[in-house]
Design a binder for these strands. Structure first.
Lengths: 339, 339
DNA sequence: CGCGCGGATGTGACCGTGCACATGTGGGGA
DNA sequence: TCCCCACATGTGCACGGTCACATCCGCGCG
């Protein structure tokens, strides 16, 4: 109806070939800049192409080659700061390498959603896959489905996983916890993320490891949902008991909620309670007080991820990708040493 | 090399047909659930399909039908709260309607990046396009390129734009400004977003309109970059002069930076300065003090957007999509009326 | 009993591109 | 002069679906 296509349908290589007086294969060679094409022929073909506003049909190309120069990203919760930052850096890195990126979001984390999302990417004939799967069960479901393409996961439960590119969450959590212990705190709570999130589990593990290593009695972690809202309500409950001097929150948003609750209870940070977060979201430096937190280098993560994936794809195995070390950013939400 | 495909290649409809003892066309009919297929035949075919783990090849399908059941989203700055929320709700709405979503991100906003991103989507044979183009120049570049597919833009400079689905930014800014004026403020600054962002411009316009309407002398808006960091530095400068009692910030992040700077200067919110933000990010309720701000209904925006687009695509024009009215959320960062 | 009709299924062409192979052409060495 | 080879280009088919059309079969009706 409302199609304003000139000749009823988009031009194809044969149309170009006809007008340029060559065969369709020659046009194809120009497209894939094959070496043995005479310069004059190439120019003529290119001219006709731009004249017709020719655009190669990628469906056809993908059909015949099973190649698409596309990397798929399987993500969930892409509106969170972490995932979206990673996706952004993956896109940048992939673009530099001449690849397209298509993302598929999982609204839920059941196997059906995973399969649907993978189908979506599969249908695009992606050549490689980056799986940003913060939930344990997603990772497990994926390892069951045997993927036909090389893939890389971000974050893993398993240290020996050759597919994993990750930030060392355990080390980050230990940094945060040690910082609190060094400042003299002995009653420290941990506000963790949802139980089935890999990051949440790793941070919890790091917390417990460090507490044990330093012989500080541990408390049971509180399981949250990453939201500031949850941090606030958890903080309200905690302030009723008031048997702690510091809290290590598994992300910055929940830390914000905690601070809110502490102030609502008439106390202050860091005078009465010290708080450490995780992620170093851009806002963390401007919380009141500015938040001590653990920074993850997301851009680096994205870059390594794409590099590792392309390595795997290009039959040039990069070996073990290693882990990125996070960094403790000390700000005012943890006071000066109290001893 | 490392392909662990069972039989060398993925099964196709002919493989399914052979095993089910029918023709490939019958398989195709089952796929598209054509009415005149005997139930027993259908079941047999479906069984073989799941046995072979058959998945239709979308490239092939797109090639022959020129249909892809895919909606493209052209976005920039997708890591920002607004765009990412919108994308998420678009995905949900599209999925409900049986459509896939592919997003293309523009790292820069020059015409080249736009064309590259559009090519990407075009190559996927998208049937419709949602353009989340917060910058004026992007919108302008796009209106020059004549797209071959129906499209919808989010936010526009032009009230009569039939392609636009948008939140009424001007009305939102007026709400915020009026709120400050009603509380007795007469010296109000506006910390705006970057000049070429449509939202920034609209909010600035709303601010100026309301100030004029209420006969309050206006000050020149300060042009920011949306970041908390900028808000902080702008706040530091402003606190040197200290000739105001309220600031309307064009987003919540900059508002956070402002609050930080005000406290650094030894003053407080809302006692000395009232602050209003824009967006109502999930954290805004837990800022200290909780932030008065303007809420945009992103989920609704995404839904309407998809509905309007599908309407356009399905030859069932929906008429003028209208604007979504934002809502003022009053919290503690603006004190009680001072008169 | 023959005819027509509609449901169920099969046959072959086609979408736009890339690949394997064939063909043509010109130049250099024996 | 002839042959061989490298370069430049052309020919036909394959990819995996869908579409238009053909075919087959059983049933109801005149």
């Amino acid at each position: 109806m409302s199609e304003n296509v000139d000749s009823g349908r988009a031009p194809n290589i044969r149309d170009v070939a006809r007008l340029a007086g060559v065969s369709h294969q020659t046009v194809s060679r120009v497209l894939n800049n094959h070496p043995s094409i005479r310069e004059s022929t190439k120019q003529r073909v290119l001219e006709v192409m731009s004249e017709l506003q020719y655009r190669p049909n990628r469906a056809a190309r993908a059909l015949v080659t099973s190649h698409s120069r596309t990397i798929g990203v399987l993500a969930s919760q892409r509106s969170h700061y972490g995932p979206s930052s990673i996706i952004q850096s993956i896109e940048a890195a992939a673009q530099d390498a001449g690849y397209f990126v298509s993302t598929a979001n999982m609204t839920k984390t059941d196997e059906d959603s995973i399969v649907t999302a993978l189908d979506h990417l599969n249908a695009l004939a992606v050549e490689g896959l980056v799986i940003i799967a913060p939930q344990v069960r997603v990772l497990r479901a994926i390892s069951k489905l045997d993927l036909r393409v090389p893939f890389v996961t971000i974050s893993s439960t398993d240290d020996t996983d050759e597919h994993a590119v990750a930030v060392d969450q355990v080390a980050g959590a230990r940094l945060a916890t040690r910082h609190l212990i060094e400042r003299g705190h002995r009653s420290i709570y941990h506000l963790a993320g949802p139980q089935d999130w890999i990051e949440a589990e790793a941070r919890m593990l790091g917390f417990l490891q460090e507490m044990n290593a330093q012989d500080v009695p541990t408390t049971a972690p509180i399981l949250g949902d990453w939201s500031a809202e949850f941090g606030y309500y958890a903080g309200r409950e905690l302030m009723r008991v008031r048997d702690f001097t510091a809290i290590f929150s598994s992300n910055d948003q929940m830390a914000l909620g905690l601070i809110h609750a502490i102030r609502d209870a008439g106390q202050d940070v860091p005078q009465d309670v010290s708080i450490v977060g995780f992620d170093d979201i851009p806002e963390a430096a401007h919380f009141w007080p500015p938040l001590t937190t653990v920074r993850q280098d997301f851009p680096e993560l994205g870059r390594r991820c794409v590099a590792h994936l392309l390595g795997t794809m290009g039959n040039a195995p990069e070996g073990f990708p290693g882990r990125i070390q996070p960094e403790l950013i000390v700000r005012a939400s943890t006071g000066p040493p109290s001893f």
